[in-house]
């Protein structure tokens, strides 16, 4: 019986084989590594030391939370995420309003603003490290020098600030892109009505535009958080987590534990922490998306 000769309900059943492959691979993709991470996190398991085996219980977690590096990495992660969020969402909101306004060449200006988002992370990191922030040859140093200041060795003196600048530059376009879409969906008549009611630009922004953008801002914050929690390449190619542990985030710590020290158990425990952190945000994000889904 071919699908077309079947009544509606049976052909609907035929939707399942279409869906199954995607569901299956995603299920595997989620369950298997997750279960393995959980399992490893309870194991004594170091790739360099095959004699070290067996059940570790919560030892890995114990070592993790008693390791000052772990707490440093959590603080670093928090500093990085919060700083970048404040910068990108704050500037992003203002820029979204700016680029919602018509001016000559706006479309081209808009393309320039969102361009950094399409630069691969390793490129933006090295570009900033060498061409902009290099103490001798970087433009920042040259400009500082020209004005008689001592050039700043960014990655030695303010490594976290340097990373924050790079990551903010990468993610500001994302915030602008999303928030601009949100601003543009605002009914122009609403603004005009507010203006007839005597609202100036600031009143309009506070009472009309911001409330309208609230939802989009929430979404930007959540999505950025999920990505920022796992920022890796920028740190990998610029500071390698240093100097010391100044720029070691949770993601980088896990990487270092796993692939530099081959401590599978300890790294897995860190991985579990990362998953839990991301899931706290993800729950809110999924709920927010669900509200918009009319399926």
């Amino acid at each position: 019986m071919s699908a077309s000769t079947m009544p509606a309900s049976r052909s609907r059943g035929a939707g399942l084989p279409f869906l199954a492959p995607s569901v299956l691979v995603l299920l595997l993709w989620m369950i298997v590594p997750l279960a393995m991470t959980l399992w490893f996190s309870t194991q004594r398991y170091n790739l360099l030391d095959p004699t070290q085996t067996g059940f570790a219980g919560i030892d890995n977690y114990y070592y993790l939370v008693t390791d000052p590096d772990f707490w440093t990495s959590l603080v670093n992660t928090l500093v990085l995420v919060v700083s970048v969020l404040v910068i990108t969402v704050g500037l992003g909101t203002l820029l979204a309003v700016l680029y919602d306004t018509a001016f000559p060449g706006r479309n081209i200006a808009r393309l320039l603003v969102i361009a950094p988002f399409f630069v691969m992370p390793t490129v933006s990191a090295l570009m900033w490290k060498n061409l902009m922030m290099h103490p001798i040859y970087g433009l920042f140093g040259v400009v500082a020098h020209a004005f008689g200041f001592a050039p700043i060795d960014w990655f030695a003196q303010y490594p976290m600030a340097a990373i924050v600048i790079i990551v903010s530059w990468e993610w500001l376009p994302f915030a602008v892109l999303i928030l601009l879409t949100a601003v543009q969906s605002l009914d122009g008549e609403q603004k005009e009505a507010a203006r007839l009611d005597g609202a100036g630009p600031i009143a309009q922004f506070v009472y009309i535009i911001l409330p309208h953008m609230r939802r989009a801002i929430t979404v930007v914050i959540m999505i950025e958080t999920i990505f920022l929690l796992t920022i890796f390449a920028e740190i990998f190619v610029t500071t390698s987590g240093g100097p010391g542990t100044a720029t070691t985030t949770l993601a980088y710590l896990i990487y270092a534990r796993a692939l530099l020290q081959y401590d599978v158990g300890g790294a897995s425990a860190g991985g579990v922490v990362a998953i839990v952190l991301a899931n706290i945000v993800a729950i809110f994000l999924v709920r927010s998306i669900a509200r918009n889904l009319e399926a």
């Binding site: 569901v23 890796f232 991985g271 990362a274 998953i275």
Partner: peptide, 22 residues
């Protein structure tokens, strides 16, 4: 649909080790 999305929110670093070993 929502479940599929939620798999996207699994941080890669959380599953780096098993994927690497696999």
């Amino acid at each position: 649909l929502l479940w599929m999305l939620s798999t996207k929110m699994l941080p890669p670093v959380g599953v780096l080790i098993p994927i690497y070993l696999l």
